[in-house]
């Protein structure tokens, strides 16, 4: 233990090599992308959602954003999901929507942190994109396809509730819980954060899928109860896997990515 201040001049420490992306070692990005791909094989569905089962990896997109940060997280999830589309087509759905969802979910999760002063306003960009997506999705439902207002509100509960929770201080509260030493709070933070981050991704995804498929009002009725249950499944996946991953990462003491919040 050195009680005396070092004689040498303190230097600014920065990673200027190519071995990391946005402060996240490439090795981490590769490993987590591989995990996303592996989980793409596992169909995890309560019932049919937007025309098929959803892959288990949807539960960890948020986690990857909190571990790697918005940019590296989006890259890892995007690459993992893209490979997953090819190697596990049975869970893929519309391939580019799957990849976009992965990228948006991890990016949104990474933007929930306020620890990087230069990125404090990035969350606003996420809000703007989500609002535009909801206008496309719900606007088309209400004004083009004539879906009844109550079913549009019920079926999009996960979307607007996520956006509200993202705008409110719950955004930073989630990050605070994920960074807590108390693993129960970590699990709650991961569950709530998964709801928020995937809800935002889901809004963006639906702007594409609804434009493509224009499902009728009967489907909206069914979705209004199914989608929240599916979301709870994703939250459970995120909390269970995420708590173990974060506890392990902390215990092993591996280098923490610059934008990681755990």
């Amino acid at each position: 233990m050195s009680a005396v201040a070092p004689k040498g001049q303190e230097r600014v420490v920065k990673n200027i090599g190519g071995a990391a992306i946005d402060g996240a070692p490439i090795a981490y990005i590769v490993v987590l992308a591989a995990v996303v791909t592996a989980l793409a094989f596992i169909p995890f569905s309560v019932v049919l959602a937007s025309g098929g089962s959803f892959p288990m990896n949807q539960g960890i997109f948020g986690l990857i954003g909190w571990v790697l940060g918005p940019i590296a997280g989006a890259i890892a999830s995007g690459i993992g999901a893209l490979i997953g589309v090819f190697v596990a087509p049975h869970t893929a759905g519309v391939w580019f929507v799957t990849v976009i969802g992965a990228i948006v979910a991890s990016f949104a999760a990474g933007c929930m942190s306020a620890q990087n002063a230069k990125r404090k306003s990035w969350w606003l960009g996420v809000v703007i994109v989500t609002v535009i997506a909801l206008i496309i999705y719900l606007g088309r439902a209400l004004f083009v396809n004539g879906i009844a207002l109550q079913w549009a509100i019920f079926a999009s509960f996960v979307n607007w509730s996520s956006l509200l929770l993202f705008i409110l201080p719950t955004r930073t509260l989630v990050v605070k819980w994920i960074g807590s030493k108390n693993l129960v709070l970590v699990a709650i933070g991961l569950a709530l954060g998964t709801w928020i981050s995937f809800g935002i991704a889901h809004s963006v995804q639906n702007a594409f899928t609804y434009t493509m498929y224009n499902w009728p009002e009967e489907i909206w009725v069914m979705l209004s109860s199914v989608i929240p249950i599916e979301f709870l499944s994703r939250c459970a996946i995120g909390a269970v896997i995420g708590t173990g991953v974060i506890a392990g990462l902390r215990a092993i003491g591996l280098v923490k990515p610059t934008e990681g919040v755990y």
Binding site: Q9, V13, G17, V255
Partner: peptide, 25 residues
């Protein structure tokens, strides 16, 4: 410290390169 981070004091020069000013590669 480039990969691990932390606090670094003083200088290391290898083959004339400052190890904090040049990328690892």
């Amino acid at each position: 410290p480039q990969f691990y981070g932390g606090r670094f004091f003083g200088n290391i020069h290898v083959a004339g390169l400052d190890t904090l000013e040049h990328p690892i590669n």
